[in-house]
Nucleic acid binder design. Sequence first.
DNA 1: CCCACTTTGTGCATCGGTTCACAAAGGGAC
DNA 2: GTCCCTTTGTGAACCGATGCACAAAGTGGG
Lengths: 235, 235
Amino acid sequence: MIRRLSQARERGIPEATVARLPLYLRALNGMAERGLATVSSEDLAVAAGVNSAKLRKDLSHLGSYGTRGVGYDVEYLIYQISRELGLTQDWAVAIVGVGNLGRALANYGGFVSRGFRVAALLDADPEVVGDRIAGLNVEHIDELETVIRRRGVSIVVLATPAAAAQQVADRVVAAGITSILNFAPVVLSVPEGVDIRKVDLSIELQILAFHEQRKTDRMTGGPAMAEEWPEAVDL
Amino acid sequence: MIRRLSQARERGIPEATVARLPLYLRALNGMAERGLATVSSEDLAVAAGVNSAKLRKDLSHLGSYGTRGVGYDVEYLIYQISRELGLTQDWAVAIVGVGNLGRALANYGGFVSRGFRVAALLDADPEVVGDRIAGLNVEHIDELETVIRRRGVSIVVLATPAAAAQQVADRVVAAGITSILNFAPVVLSVPEGVDIRKVDLSIELQILAFHEQRKTDRMTGGPAMAEEWPEAVDL
DNA sequence: CCCACTTTGTGCATCGGTTCACAAAGGGAC
DNA sequence: GTCCCTTTGTGAACCGATGCACAAAGTGGG
Ligand SMILES: NC(=O)c1ccc[n+]([C@@H]2O[C@H](COP(=O)([O-])OP(=O)(O)OC[C@H]3O[C@@H](n4cnc5c(N)ncnc54)[C@H](O)[C@@H]3O)[C@@H](O)[C@H]2O)c1
Ligand SMILES: NC(=O)c1ccc[n+]([C@@H]2O[C@H](COP(=O)([O-])OP(=O)(O)OC[C@H]3O[C@@H](n4cnc5c(N)ncnc54)[C@H](O)[C@@H]3O)[C@@H](O)[C@H]2O)c1
């Protein structure tokens, strides 16, 4: 029987769901390696660290791929999620800014594993340009447009200093890129239609610090309520 | 006049707000450097890339620190947000797993700038132990408990391979740590009360790929509807 | 001192996302 | 074929977050 496309398919998958699909995919891959043929929403939910009702609702947005009384076919679900995420094609990624972080990313194996391929490394520093890292030549940022076109790059990872990030982002966007992963601690401004995701270590640590402070406050009997502004600063 | 503590203070700041405070703080620091004394919610919102009503509501959770008709005092607001986030104290951070990524993190300057201090580097590989990185000796993972206690570490950054992450997390938690930033692509299971934040490159790329696919699909006239499962796989 | 102007702080409607709970679907035993 | 058991898919209630819109508060000018 040809499976009916649920009306949910095509008509926008919720953003929160999209963000969890890679998690399910990772859990499923682990299960496939261990030779499991089917999995229940309950088991998969546990492996992915989410609630099983949420998992079922998420999957229902892709279509009706489970079998009541049985669960989901592991391989089939891997294929469906991969396809939905666009991982059945391979994506050429360029890393701009080959410093501490850029090098770590370039050398990172887990990158390649799932549809992503580092296709170019670019930097502005003549000292760095020409270096061979993870089998790739570091090219000069002046070549940006050419490299993007020639290698079919569609995702750019920004690992330059904060001061250069906006300027590089502008060039990258002008070159036709619409997907950017930004590691620099700045709010990038880009035109409508360009997707930016950011990874910000410092923000993550600050959020942890906030909660950590709450925990220790609670133990030591609450924060020092008095101290609001140590030396009264005239507003 | 002593400022009244709003009832919102102390009684839980929304998680979404907490996640944005570091953003406001960063924008404010930039403004302070440029010598601005006060800022309106509108200007600050633009600098932080959010809606101004949201910004005002966020700040209102900390207290009533603005002046109608004028805006917010930059220095004062920096202090209030810093205090709320717990950045007026300094936090000792340990990095476990000193490979590609761990090294980049250890060498990262922006780390120290705001209340965080890398206090220890730990690894299991005898080849790596003893290396001097960013002025710190890499210590053996066996010393974990001692190092955490002696240096007053309260936040641990996990940069080990995925396979080791859960095991290391267990030890770290047993040593009394309740805040972990995890770079390994695994769902860590930890007891109630332990906060985990994760940074997952691969997930970010997959989310970008999803949207990128949608964009190109739209241009090429929608996805190939027929192909649902290339070679019918028997369920 | 009053008035016009600016900008905050928030009540309220709305929205997206989560969770519960259950009817419907399918499998397997006999 | 019938019955029982398991598990999906989803309606509906709920919850937190967002954004509009405006009254209240404060500034500065005359
Ligand atoms: N290293 C980390 O662990 C870490 C963690 C979090 C965030 N970050 C952020 O990631 C970014 C990179 O960090 P890093 O430690 O690798 O810095 P880095 O200084 O080691 O490397 C930056 C690289 O970008 C290059 N560059 C500068 N301007 C450029 C331009 N216009 N075009 C192309 N390349 C340019 C430099 O030549 C250098 O090689 C920074 O914004 C940093 O704040 C780094
Ligand atoms: N490098 C990247 O750009 C990148 C990006 C995203 C995610 N990650 C993830 O970050 C983690 C680290 O990546 P990497 O590239 O630095 O890997 P790596 O192999 O270069 O480094 C891992 C380090 O952890 C150490 N280690 C192993 N077991 C340990 C244990 N039980 N206790 C303490 N240390 C132990 C190893 O000796 C090694 O030095 C991995 O989980 C990886 O998937 C890395």
